[in-house]
Design a binder for these strands. Structure first.
Length: 365
DNA sequence: AAGGGCGGCAACCGCCGAAAA
DNA sequence: CTTTTCGGCGGTTGCCGCCCT
């Protein structure tokens, strides 16, 4: 059960793909789509067979048909292998090439939140595959973090230079950091499981190449808001988070100020297209989150009063990834330069603001 | 020039959950 | 409801090329 029958079939090729195999697979999928992967290897060959046999048909030669069928057996690969080859190599939308510093920092940040969920990390990096990211992490990024004195499994400073966590730890997604005196961690018990699942924050030091110890903060929201109870909004913006889909990872912000509706452009700031958006430079230059956010919001059917603490945190929402805040890594440098109003100094005040922010939610709900 | 070590990378393996039969 | 098939995922392996001795 659960086993691929193709794995046991004999005479299937394994190992590196030849250019001819690539061409067969590419031609077939480009023209017909992959459909059911298990039938792709057969069909990729059959279509070539049909095409050539039409030519031979004109020659009325049964013998030639037999010879052709014997010589064109299709792709001698299992469907799973075809799928992998397409996804990791042949897909036309792959970026290829070396990872940029921006991408590396983003992967590190995402890994601190998601653990080894490579597919979810890859979803935040257009044109990159989970396999590629996994390889980069195992061969390069883990070492870089260790050199900076950071445990790549926990993203915390290593207590000892050779302090490495067991391999088994890395196979599991990271749980939210336990509260202690060093990390800021808030995990809100659900006031109402339908309204607010939880939101949590952590705050830890991230030594960088430029400074030995720099503040870095991440901010996550998990919110379950039934839209049926929401007032009809003047505009509604769903901020997509990068968190697992086991919880509804969205926060609904609804402006009740008709003069300051939440713009439709906000999703583009925070969803998966952020990188593409950045690459295309197709950005409005005058985005001011404070303008958008500096207005009362409805959270569910409750009005969330304006509060300095909300603005302090809301304006630090990192556009590229939704609910990440990182004021030390270079991932945000370009934004900081082009949109300095998006980023407030964090340091100590950040912790207090996050606290107040969470309390505001609690009181409102 | 030979060969050993190492890193990067492509691809396989095995498991899981969902869907189909 | 059970069994089978399939797609997806993460861990791991092994090949290949580069570098050093």
């Amino acid at each position: 059960m659960g086993r691929h029958s193709c794995c046991y079939k004999q005479k299937l090729r394994k190992g590196l793909w030849s250019p001819e195999e690539d061409e067969k697979l590419l031609n077939y999928i480009t023209k017909h789509g992959h459909g059911c992967w298990s039938s792709v290897p057969k069909l990729a060959g059959i279509y070539i067979y049909i095409y050539i046999s039409l030519i031979i048909y004109t020659l009325h030669s049964t013998l030639l048909h037999l010879i052709l069928y014997a010589c064109l057996p299709g792709l001698q690969r299992c469907g799973k292998s075809c799928r992998l080859r397409w996804i990791n190599y042949l897909r036309p939308d792959l970026k290829r090439g070396a990872f940029s510093q921006h991408e590396e920092n983003l992967i590190i940040e995402l890994h601190s939140l998601l653990g080894n969920r490579w597919s979810q990390i890859a979803a935040q990096l257009p044109g990159r595959t989970d396999n590629e990211i996994k390889n980069l992490w195992n061969s390069c990024l883990k070492k870089k973090l260790k050199q900076r004195g950071i445990d790549p499994n926990t993203h915390k400073p290593l207590s000892h230079p050779n302090d490495i966590h067991p391999i088994s730890d890395s196979s599991k997604p990271h749980q939210p950091y336990p509260p202690d005196s060093h990390d800021l961690f808030l995990h809100h018990k659900s006031y109402n499981s339908d309204m607010l699942a939880c939101f949590s924050f952590h705050h830890f030091n991230y030594p960088t190449t430029t400074t030995t110890t720099t503040s870095s903060s991440s901010l996550c929201f998990n919110n379950n808001i039934p839209t049926s109870t929401s007032p009809s909004p003047s505009s509604t913006t769903m901020l997509h988070s990068i968190l697992p889909t086991t919880v509804n990872p969205t926060l609904t912000l609804q402006s009740n100020n008709p003069h300051h509706p939440l713009p439709n452009t906000i999703p583009h700031l925070v969803d998966n297209q952020a990188l593409a958006w950045e690459n295309n430079k197709d950005l409005p230059d005058d985005i001011k989150w404070s303008d958008y956010l500096n207005t009362p919001f409805f959270l569910g059917n409750q009005m969330l009063q304006t509060s300095p603490s909300i603005y302090a945190t809301a304006t630090e929402v990192k556009p590229e990834t939704g609910f990440l805040v990182d004021d030390s890594c270079t991932t945000t440098t370009s934004w900081h330069h082009t949109h300095p109003q998006l980023f407030q100094p964090s340091s100590d005040i950040y912790s207090k603001d996050v606290h107040r922010f969470s309390m505001a939610f609690g009181q409102t709900l």
